[in-house]
Amino acid sequence: MTLRAPRTVATLAALAALGLTACGSDAEEPAGSDATGTDGADGTDGTTEDAAASAPAEGDGTVTLYSGRNEDLVQPVLDAFTDETGIEVEVRYADTAAMAAQILEEGDNSPAEAFLAQDAGALGAVAKEGRLLELPQETLDLVPETYRSQDGDWVGLTGRARVLVYNKDAVAEDELPSSVQELTEDEWAGRVGIAPTNASFQSFVTAMRVQEGDETARQWLTDMAANDPQVREKNGIIVADVDSGAIDTGLVNHYYLYELAEEQGVPAEELSAALHFFPDGDTGALVNISGIGLVDEQPDGEAQALVDYLLSEAGQTYFVENTHEYPMVEGVEPDASLPPLDSLDVPDIDLNDLDDLQTTIEMISEAGLL
């Protein structure tokens, strides 16, 4: 059964009202593939899927999930979990920030048993308030340390790389910037699409604060706002506008390009849009995660079974094949058209440090981008 949360909780208002010091995510657009790799199959390595299939007898047969990921994207894998385990998933869908805010507002009365978030910052915000449980070590060990909580209370499910999408007819490869800092220069005036309400953009700005300092991030936002940015509501819209030639470039997550290719029924390389991965550890090359944490006590183990299934071969393969995000577990290969995750020159940023989203949102708003 699916419960829908009202979408009237604005990211900024929700965070400010609750005094959150971190969180982030706007609604994620459906992915034919935020959005924004991994493969899906019925196979298992005999560990995580075995755990997922064994719901304790004392359970009520349901898991209440608060999801900041889009229904079109995740409902099929949740249905597969139900088919595999017999455990029903009752889902409340809204943007990630709203879901995080609601969990904190509801406190001990929250019906949420698991929180599926679009980025690490939102999970960190909820965890900071003591609302997430420590996960079993065997679950944590499935995911590299880089992509899980240092306190063990959330774990990454998929990896998503920040990129510059560009129109190949409008921007030559030798003209591509080596850093996001260059995008505030006159050369790029009116040519860059951004989605300031999107969780991925907010996490990217938070990462810039962590890597470069608040003053650099604040100046970048101010300069970007003065450079006639092409503001869009969602990453998918930016990619479509770049492909059509309405915008020359845009800051997005990598997988939206593949979503557009699937919508048009063509290989990604035949699109007019292409991806530029920033080099040299630039903040624009941040690899964030979508992830999950358990909320409060879990006496029946059914929510843990959901986590285990999403990290199983079947769950991870689903994400690879349907979202083109990077898988988090060994033995599941990413989309062959993507550069290997370990080949990306990512910034040296701990995802656990992205939990101060409130300040980031205030900066974005002060710059006039919200």
Rank of each mutant, 00 (worst) to 15 (best):
T11L: 13
S110C: 00
D214S: 09
E71F: 08
F319I: 07
F278Y: 15
T216V: 15
L132N: 03
D79H: 06
A125R: 07
F115C: 01
Q264D: 10
A240N: 14
Q264S: 07
A261P: 02
I247C: 01
L221Y: 12
D174P: 05
F81G: 00
F277P: 03
A41P: 12
I289H: 01
I292C: 03
R92Q: 04
E105Y: 15
V9M: 11
E28F: 11
V143P: 11
A112I: 09
E366A: 15
P347W: 07
E325A: 10
S312L: 09
T21F: 15
D151I: 14
I194W: 10
I194L: 13
V63T: 05
D79F: 06
S272W: 05
E134I: 14
V63N: 02
V192F: 07
S337A: 13
I194K: 04
I237A: 15
E321Q: 15
T197D: 05
E270Y: 11
S272P: 04
A367C: 05
L370F: 13
M224W: 06
G301R: 02
A14E: 10
E313D: 12
D356I: 02
P136M: 01
L135A: 05
V242W: 08
V143A: 10
D45S: 10
G121E: 06
F277C: 00
Q358I: 06
G331Q: 07
L140F: 09
A22W: 14
S149M: 03
L275T: 09
T21S: 11
E49G: 02
D353W: 05
G121M: 05
V192I: 15
L271R: 00
T359V: 11
A13L: 10
F115V: 00
E187T: 13
D223A: 07
G130S: 13
S54K: 14
S365K: 12
E175G: 06
L338I: 04
A97M: 08
Y93W: 11
A94P: 00
A199L: 10
L260Y: 10
Y326I: 01
I361H: 07
Y255D: 12
D243L: 06
E212A: 12
